[in-house]
Design a protein around this nucleic acid. Structure first.
Lengths: 155, 155
DNA sequence: TATTGTTATACTCTATAACTATA
DNA sequence: TATAGTTATAGAGTATAACAATA
């Protein structure tokens, strides 16, 4: 009865369908979108000597001048131990400075240098172009909806 | 003029705001959602001896019986070289079988064993519960919207 | 020539434990 | 005792190059 010829049993060459199970999972759609975004973002930032993680760190310090390392880790979901080599890399390139924190001698207050600000602003332009390219199919309202819905996941 | 006391300048303890730059990026929202989903998914699958990657492989083979390794890699975005140890792990546990492919002596056709199907179905129940938990705040229409919008990213 | 599966290798990201110095 | 920064280390995930067998 079933006209199996219509669905071309196992011969589709451009088949990227993961099947009904994965195809119905929001988590799978999020993962695929994340992969595409991160791959493209990495390519955009590479010429500036940055990666997604180091870009995010610079942006966070810029938004919170004097923030301590643990604060950056809490915001970005990076563990203190894993933050150390990333910050050392940025400090070694004179993009950030580690200064003694005012009221806590254990902590280091982080600030961007003038060079760091310049590089961040240059990277921001690249990232905004990257976003516009990735979201070409979506208007401003779609993008707001997307951010709002994504923010509800796991909340 | 600006009543700065309202926004409590630099003293919010529960502050997870990454700042105006990252906060406005869809990519950042996707990344955070992906992290929350993957962390929870990993916890759900661990008792079954599976990870997100091995679960996705089982689901893909179940949807495409007889698919060859390169096909699985193309669907899931996993490179052939990285697929080998994953498939060896699954074959070692007798969850899948590698059989000579009918029309191509280079390729291996992959199928689920009865044990593999049982484990996949058990894992599927766990994953659906995981999804319902992660998407608790979203109704069916929101979820469809989310999948549709995510599918347009990078297209 | 191109493709499939495979091995080897390296690099990034992430996770944990332990140490020090401060609080 | 708890926290901040640090070191060391191990595990995933991902990337490339090269090879043998086959198309």
């Amino acid at each position: 009865m079933a006209p199996e010829a219509i669905r071309s049993p196992e011969r589709r060459r451009d088949n990227r369908d993961p099947g009904p199970l994965l195809g119905s999972l929001v988590g799978y759609a999020v993962r695929r979108a994340n992969n595409r975004i991160m791959t493209d973002l990495g390519i955009c930032l590479a010429p500036l000597g940055l990666r997604p993680a180091t870009f995010a760190i610079l942006a966070t310090i810029d938004a919170h001048p004097g923030i301590i390392q643990a604060g950056v880790g809490a915001i970005l979901g990076i563990q203190r131990a894993n933050l150390v080599p990333l910050l050392s890399e940025l400090a070694g390139r004179r993009l950030i400075e580690r200064r003694p924190a005012p009221h806590d001698n254990r902590a280091q207050a982080l600030i961007l240098t003038a060079t760091g600000k310049d590089l961040l602003h240059e990277a921001s332009r690249e990232v905004r172009m990257h976003e516009d390219r990735m979201l070409m199919q979506l208007d401003a309202r779609d993008r707001e909806t997307l951010v709002a819905l994504l923010g509800e996941i796991g909340a």
